[in-house]
Computed example of a mutant assay.
Amino acid sequence: MKKVISGIGLLAFFVLFLAFSAKAQNEFPSQIWHKGNVYDTDGQGFSGLLKYDLDNNLIQVKGDVIQTLTAANVSFFEIYDEVYGGIRKFYSLPYAINGDYETPVFFEVLTEGNEIALLCREYIATDARNLNTMGGMGMNPFFGPQTMMGYRLAFNYYFFKNGRIERYSQKKRDLFEMLPGYKDEISLFMRKNRLEHDKRGDLLRITAYYNELDSN
């Protein structure tokens, strides 16, 4: 009898563990709490669990209480993404999302060099192709599409160059305008490594390669 009870207890624990794991995997990164650090505009830093909202340029910090901070109050924050792995860094930078009026906006920095940095802002988009599917996530969001119940994680990309933030159209011809001077070298690098002009991980590699070329 004790063995049966013990077996049931282990089974219940296993089911709960699977349910917790599935819940973590079935949420987008902006929907969960991450361990991280925040630095305000005065340079003061503090740590806690962080949840970010790029649509509204807000972050929440969970300590003894939950604090809500805006991009106007924060200069930089970083999180450790335990689901997908790695440290992700976000800066508050002046940018006009709508119209000509610049306000502090959170951008994730993917890679940076002496002249050019690649930035991005993620968002959750409707994916009509997956509206009728019942599967969970698909692929790592850093290197390919991530889908969940008819939604997918998408990105807008930006290049910080010449002291300005320029939005990238995700058209291949515009990539060479954003990264001028090395079209032949970049084209060869993309072909050899089978890189796409509109994927997060590929863009990161392309920009890092450009910065290496530009530093020589």
Rank of each mutant, 00 (worst) to 15 (best):
A154V: 01
G135N: 11
Q25I: 03
Y52G: 01
M178C: 09
L119N: 03
T111W: 05
G150T: 06
K3G: 04
D184P: 04
R129I: 09
K199E: 08
L213I: 06
G43Q: 12
G36A: 02
L50Q: 07
V109P: 04
N130F: 15
V15K: 02
A19E: 06
R200Q: 07
K171W: 09
L188S: 08
F13L: 15
F159Q: 07
N130S: 13
K172V: 11
L179F: 05
I186G: 05
K199T: 12
D55S: 01
F14E: 07
E102W: 06
G43K: 10
Q25S: 02
T126K: 15
S92I: 03
T70N: 10
N57Y: 01
I66G: 03
L119I: 03
E78M: 08
A24Y: 01
T41I: 14
Y52W: 08
F189N: 09
E82Q: 11
Y210S: 08
R200T: 02
M134V: 09
A125F: 14
N73Y: 12
E115P: 01
L204D: 04
Q31P: 00
Y157C: 00
D81L: 00
S187F: 09
Q25L: 01
Y91R: 05
T111Q: 04
G144E: 05
E102P: 04
A24G: 01
I116H: 07
H197C: 01
G7Q: 14
Y151V: 00
G36H: 03
T111H: 02
D174E: 12
A22P: 04
V65P: 01
R164M: 11
G85Y: 03
L204Y: 04
S30G: 00
K2C: 07
K35D: 07
R167Q: 15
N140Q: 07
P104Q: 09
R167I: 14
M190Q: 13
L16I: 15
I186M: 06
N98D: 13
N156W: 13
F159P: 04
Y210N: 05
A19H: 12
L175W: 03
P145E: 05
Y39V: 11
P145I: 11
S6V: 11
N98F: 15
A71S: 03
N193E: 02
E212K: 14
F160E: 10
V65Y: 14
F76R: 15
I165N: 03
H197W: 08
K3M: 12
R200W: 08
V83M: 10
Y80D: 07
T103Y: 08
Y209L: 07
S92F: 09
K161S: 03
N37T: 13
Y209C: 05
N140H: 15
P180D: 05
T133A: 06
Q146R: 13
D198T: 10
N114I: 06
V105L: 02
F28D: 00
P94E: 09
G135A: 12
E212L: 14
F155C: 02
L203E: 00
F46W: 15
K35M: 05
